[in-house]
Amino acid sequence: MTDGEQLTIDDEIVARARIHARTVLDEYDLSVDRDALEWETSLRARRRAGACRWDPNREIATIILARRAYERYDWPTFAGVVRHELVHAWEYQRFGESGHGARFRERAAALDAPRHCQSFSEPRYVLRCRETDCDWEATRHRASKPVKSPDRYRCGSCGGSYEVEHAESGRTWTTASGYGGSKAALGDDW
């Protein structure tokens, strides 16, 4: 860095993540090749606090950390995201693939890393089962197919029908036309 240059928040995120990663890799003897590990930040991410991409041609794992998550989480929570993504990097480097299965769960538990990172933004939609004896609920951040056409899908628990709620307005619908009507009625508030 030359005189007059200032560190950005993205520089801070990557620096803190790298320092934490070095400590974790040394303390837990996680065999991640640091020379085959790259770091990036994302301003676009709205729900995933982190991700790990694998480039099999270069054999490089890239950990991407969301700036919004860094700004909203306390450090211990964000450090958990870093550990979570390090487990993915380890799996990619060692096995060429990664997921959230038994191998991941075992290694994540050893590192005190969460199996799934909590969302750092409020969901835009809430899906709820309409059956009185079922309390199934799911959230979505985007207008996915189950949000747009709930009548074509079923409850994830009991198989019953469900409704979708636009979280900010409270409007609900159970059909594709209900989705369209709600979207039209809300206009700019959608």
Rank of each mutant, 00 (worst) to 15 (best):
E168Y: 02
W173I: 02
G170F: 04
G156D: 13
P150R: 05
S157C: 03
T174F: 00
E168R: 12
V164T: 12
V147R: 02
E137C: 08
R130H: 02
E131F: 03
S157D: 14
H116E: 07
G170C: 04
D133G: 09
G159V: 14
P146C: 09
S157Q: 09
G156Q: 10
P146H: 10
E131Y: 04
C134I: 05
R130W: 01
E165T: 15
R115N: 00
R128F: 04
E165M: 14
R142D: 10
A143F: 05
G159S: 11
Y162D: 10
H141Y: 15
P114T: 04
R128H: 07
P146Y: 06
G159A: 11
S169T: 15
E122K: 03
W173T: 01
Q118A: 11
R130T: 15
V164R: 07
W173H: 00
H166L: 11
E165L: 07
R140H: 14
Y153A: 05
E131Q: 14
E137P: 04
A167K: 13
R130V: 15
P114E: 04
F120C: 06
T139H: 05
Q118G: 05
R152N: 12
C117S: 04
S161Q: 12
C129N: 06
C155I: 13
R154H: 11
V147Q: 03
C117P: 01
G170L: 06
Y153W: 15
S144D: 14
H141A: 02
G156R: 09
H166I: 04
S121N: 14
D133V: 12
R128D: 12
V147T: 07
L127A: 08
R154D: 12
V147A: 02
S169K: 02
G160S: 13
H116D: 05
R142K: 11
S161G: 06
A176E: 14
F120A: 08
